[in-house]
């Protein structure tokens, strides 16, 4: 059994495996398929139903279940949603595991998954990642008219 609590190392090794089969292009193809299939009934549906507020609903659920260390702000008046990830539980777990090396571009899967879904809704997605410290910042905004 691969427990859901062991998913992160399984995914990191999965990225290595897929990249070994077809390089970065193949890995990005997988991320794209994952984005379409995994997020269609969750983030994409919430964005359709709630607009920008769907981001708050989606990440409230997933970041709490993932026991992340974060600050999340939804500012409807400014048309902005942001996540300050102080300590990413996934990258943090991989950095703690001294017996295995994380995939060299593990953090790249987040923008690869979320950005296309967000932009499809007419929103912008900007991010800054500090993978060595398991931290990042995401800002999602309504397009200025």
């Amino acid at each position: 059994m691969i427990s859901c609590t062991e998913f992160i190392p399984a995914y990191s090794e999965g990225f290595k495996f897929i990249e070994s089969m077809g390089g970065r292009d193949e890995l990005e193809k997988f991320w794209s398929e994952l984005s379409n299939s995994y997020l269609k009934n969750s983030l994409q549906k919430l964005l359709n139903d709630e607009g920008l507020a769907g981001c708050y609903t989606y990440w409230s659920h997933s970041l709490n279940e993932e026991a992340a260390d974060f600050t999340m702000i939804l500012d409807e008046e400014r048309g902005e949603f942001s996540i300050e990830m102080h300590k990413c539980p996934s990258k943090g777990m991989l950095l703690q595991m001294k017996h295995m090396n994380p995939h060299h571009a593990y953090c790249d899967h987040c923008p690869a998954l979320y950005k296309p879904i967000i932009e499809k809704q007419g929103l912008t997605y900007d991010h800054e990642i500090d993978g060595d410290n398991a931290s990042c910042k995401i800002v999602i905004k309504k397009l200025e008219k």
Binding site: T5, E65, A67, F70, T71, I73, L74, D75
Partner: peptide
């Protein structure tokens, strides 16, 4: 405007 702040220790890790 809504804000949420959590520490890792606030939740059980089970996704």
């Amino acid at each position: 405007r809504k804000m949420m702040t959590r520490k890792a220790s606030d939740n059980k890790y089970l996704h």
